[in-house]
Design a protein around this nucleic acid. Structure first.
Lengths: 243, 243
DNA sequence: TTGCCTGATTAATCAATGTTATTTGTCCAT
DNA sequence: ATGGACAAATAACATTGATTAATCAGGCAA
C-alpha cells in the first residue's frame, strides 16, 4: 500500500512540495497492520528496520519505570498522519515502547526507503526532520503544562491539544471527538493518580466545559476550555521557512 | 573561528565520521559571542539566520507563560558541545527563547552552512538530525521524571543528568561540578515553588548525598543519588546505527 | 437471570506542595 | 564599618494531590 494522505497534507500545510518530492513520497511502499487495544506496535530497546505511521486510532509512547514494572509514564500521543517512531530511523532503537490506544491501524515504512530519501531528496529529508521536531515541540509544551497547570487545567490542556490535532486531519467532529483512553491511562500521561484524574474530569463537567461519556467527548465551551488551559495552539502549527 | 571539538566528539562517540564528513565539519565558520548571565541568546518567535552551539557555560530554553509574563518554565538546559537551537534551522522560528545561565560563550553557525550540508552530505545530515532527537529524548525523560518523581528525587535526577552530561564533555571534575542556577531557576525547571526547591536541596544534603555551596556541587554518594533518582543514563547515550 | 469483572465515582484521611512572611548570610557600594 | 540588595533558609498555614476503601454502573459469560 501507499503512504497515507494525512502525512502528505501534514507536510503541505507547512511547506511546498515539488512534483519530484511528491512523486517520491507517493512511491513509498507501506505495510498495513492492525493492532488491538494495548498491543505493542514498536518494542523498546529493539533495533527497528521500519517505522510506523498512524492511519486510524491512536498510539502512545509508553515508558516503563526502572524498578517499578507495574508503573509507566506516557510521554506522547499520536493521531492519524503522525509518524510515531520516525526517530527510530535516525537513532539506534527507542528507549520506550509504542502501544495502541484503542484499536489502531498503522502503515509500516521500511528504513531502506527512508535511507534512499535522505540520500537523494534533501528537501524531503528536511521535512521529515521537521516532523520529528514538531514532536519535540509538543514534548516541550507538555513540560510547560506539567510545570504550570494543575489537575483540571492540565487535563483541559491535553483535551484542547488532542482535539486540535484530530481536527487538523479531519478525524474529529464539530467540537466532539473520541478519546479511547481509560482514566488510568490519562493518569499515566498527566502524572496524577487515577482518582485525581476523576476529580479533574468531574471539575470540567461541573464547570460546564465538556460532556464526557465513555470514549466520546463533546466540548460545550471551547472558549472556556482554552482559557482555563491557557491553550495556545501555535506550538502545533509550526511552519518551515519556505526558501 | 571553527566549530567546537566538543561537538565533533559528541558525534564521534555515536557514529563513525568519514574523512570527507569530518573535513566538511571542520570547514564550518563560526562566530564567537559571549553573553552575560540571563542575557537572551536566541529570541523567541523571530526568524533566525544562524544557530548557536554552546562553547562554555550553560544555556536554558525559557518559555514565557501566556497571560502571566512574570512566570516562565525552563524546558531544557544545554552544556558545552550542545547545539542549543539547531531545530531553529529546520523550523521557522522557535516558540521559546534561549537565555544564558551564568556567563556563557557560544559559536554561531550560519544557516547557509547547514543548508549546504543538508544538500551535499546526507550522512552528516542524519547526524545533525540525531543531535536534535537526543534533545527530544531528554525532553521525554524530563516528562517521565516530572510524572514519577517528587521533590528531592526529582531534583536528584536533574543533578545526575547534568553531571553526566558535563562529565561526558570533560566540563566536570571528579564528582563535582558548577551549576550556575538560582533556586528560583531550578523551580522554573522542576515546576516547584522556590521554597520547595529549597526543601529538596536540604533533603539531599541531610541524606548525605551532596554538598552544595553557591554554584559548586559535590556529589558525596553517587550510588545513593542515582538510586534515589532512579537515574538510568541510557537516554543520553543513544547511538546511531552504523551502517 | 445471575454472578463476576472492570472501570468510574465518591468519601475520608494523610502526605506533598504552595503561599506568605520572616530571618539569616553574603556581597557590594558608599 | 555601615547599609542595602539579593539569595538562601526557615516557619506557619493553606491548598493540592495520593492513598485506601467502598460503592455504583455496565458488559459479558455461564
Amino acid at each position: 500500500m501507499a503512504i497515507t494522505d494525512y502525512f502528505v497534507r501534514f507536510l503541505q500545510r507547512r511547506d511546498s512540495l515539488s512534483d519530484k518530492d511528491l512523486a517520491r513520497l507517493r512511491a513509498i511502499r507501506t505495510q498495513h497492520v492492525s493492532f488491538a487495544p494495548g498491543e505493542v506496535i514498536v518494542q523498546a530497546d529493539r533495533l527497528a528496520r521500519r517505522s510506523a505511521m498512524m492511519l486510524r486510532g491512536m498510539a502512545a509512547r509508553s515508558h516503563q519505570l526502572v524498578g517499578r514494572p507495574e508503573e509507566r509514564v506516557i510521554t506522547a500521543l499520536h493521531v492519524p498522519g503522525d509518524f510515531v517512531d520516525l526517530h527510530g530511523f535516525v537513532l539506534a532503537g527507542l528507549e520506550h515502547s509504542v502501544v495502541a490506544v484503542g484499536t489502531a491501524e498503522v502503515e509500516f515504512i521500511e528504513h531502506a526507503e527512508l535511507t534512499d530519501i535522505t540520500e537523494n531528496f534533501p528537501h524531503l529529508t528536511r521535512l521529515l526532520w521537521m516532523a520529528t521536531l514538531i514532536d519535540a515541540s509538543v514534548h516541550r509544551q507538555w513540560l510547560v503544562a506539567a510545570a504550570s497547570l494543575r489537575s483540571s487545567a492540565h487535563l483541559a490542556h491535553l483535551l484542547c491539544e488532542i482535539y486540535t490535532r484530530l481536527n487538523a486531519v479531519g478525524a474529529a467532529g464539530d467540537l466532539q471527538f473520541s478519546l479511547p483512553l481509560l482514566q488510568r491511562e490519562l493518569a499515566d500521561i498527566l502524572g496524577y493518580s487515577p482518582i485525581h484524574v476523576n476529580r479533574a474530569v468531574r471539575d470540567l463537567r461541573d464547570r460546564g466545559l465538556i460532556r464526557w461519556s465513555g470514549a466520546d467527548i463533546t466540548i460545550i465551551d471551547w472558549k472556556g476550555l482554552t482559557t482555563l488551559a491557557r491553550f495556545d495552539p501555535s506550538y502545533l502549527d509550526i511552519e518551515r521557512l519556505s526558501r
